[in-house]
Amino acid sequence: MIGWDSWKKGFDVWENATAKYLEAWMRSPLVLGPGGALLTAAMRSKTAVDGAMDAWWSAVGLPTRRDQERALHALNQMQSRLIDLEETLAEIRAQQKQQASTKA
């Protein structure tokens, strides 16, 4: 137990010092710059591959993944607009009820 406790104390000191060093290093432009460039290059490659797949897919007359996503998104938007209308109707009904009860 004493051995473990001493090891843990030493580990905590090492971890704290290493974390501080790595955090400073991560914030350096020498890491951020190439890191960003690498990520961007990977993303552009993926876009190019996806684009080629889409072109092939639409060449045989089938909807692409993007087409399906756009259609589904439009349906979701319609659902939200319908709920908006329901809310507006409920509010109008509540107002009418209130006006009727005030008159009575």
Partner: peptide
């Protein structure tokens, strides 16, 4: 601020558009 997330998103080599185009 000087936090890593803030610095990373403002890094000139990080192309936000390329990432969203690729990953959705």
């Amino acid at each position: 601020d000087e936090g890593l997330l803030s610095l990373w998103t403002r890094s000139s080599t990080f192309d936000l558009g390329a990432m969203i185009d690729a990953t959705g």
